[in-house]
């Protein structure tokens, strides 16, 4: 077996200058900039929902969009920090998605309470989930590709948070392009799958973020 001193000597021999990884906030900002471009392209391709002007007068809908955006921002920053061994010594930022998700859940409950009489369910159901899943693929691939170049010591959580971020991008895109006002449908086929996505993310993190 190798002696530790010999190992140190051999590693030092191989030590060429390295390009430092970007600051996690820069990385997060890069992801967010790409997310904005991506959502814009999706909306150009799929079109904005026909009732967007009317919906933008609803404070609950605006709050929903703002909180979805805040989930995207907080999860992107959190995933970026989680990709560094010591969380870049900014542990508190890692927990910010919890705050965003809690507010989002509260808003959904509030909307549910306000949704009386309930808006009838649309004819489609699982198609929405599939659309979001398709829209999630590209951001997921890019985020995981970037994170694999770093060194996460929390691969499960990093995977989960990154996938949640990518899924939120898909959910926001679809919310802006699909004309669905049934809250039950939105909860069932847009937002509840987020829980499953979080679990899939744990698994993806375990497989893809090992180093």
């Amino acid at each position: 077996m190798l002696d530790t001193e010999k190992l140190i000597a051999s590693m030092a021999r191989d030590a060429s200058p390295v390009t430092p990884a970007p600051h996690p906030f820069m990385l997060g900002a890069k992801w967010l900039a790409a997310a904005i471009i991506y959502i814009a392209l999706v909306l150009v391709f799929m079109g904005l929902r026909p009732d967007i002007v009317f919906k933008l007068r609803s404070p609950i809908f605006i709050a929903e969009l703002v909180l979805l955006a805040s989930i995207i921002i907080s999860t992107a920053l959190s995933a970026a920090l989680l990709s560094f061994p010591d969380l870049h010594q900014k542990r508190w930022v890692v927990y910010t998605p919890i705050v965003a998700v809690v507010f989002f859940i509260l808003l959904i409950f509030l909307s549910w309470w306000a949704d009386f009489p309930p808006v009838p369910l649309p004819r489609h159901n699982v198609q929405c989930l599939l659309s979001i899943a398709c829209l999630t693929l590209l951001p997921t691939a890019w985020m995981f590709y970037t994170m694999r170049g770093l060194a996460s010591t929390h691969p499960y959580w990093t995977g989960s948070i990154a996938l949640l971020s990518a899924f939120s991008i898909g959910a926001l895109s679809l919310r802006l392009s699909e004309q669905t006002n049934s809250l039950i449908h939105v909860i069932q086929w847009h937002y509840l799958p987020m829980l499953a996505v979080g679990l899939i993310g744990l698994l993806l993190g375990k497989i893809l973020l090992r180093w």
Partner: peptide, 19 residues
């Protein structure tokens, strides 16, 4: 310890000298 040193070597680009 050797595993850790190897990991430090692999992840050294994630160290920021400001921290």
């Amino acid at each position: 310890l050797q595993e850790i040193l190897l990991s430090i070597h692999k992840a050294r680009h994630t160290y920021d000298a400001q921290r």
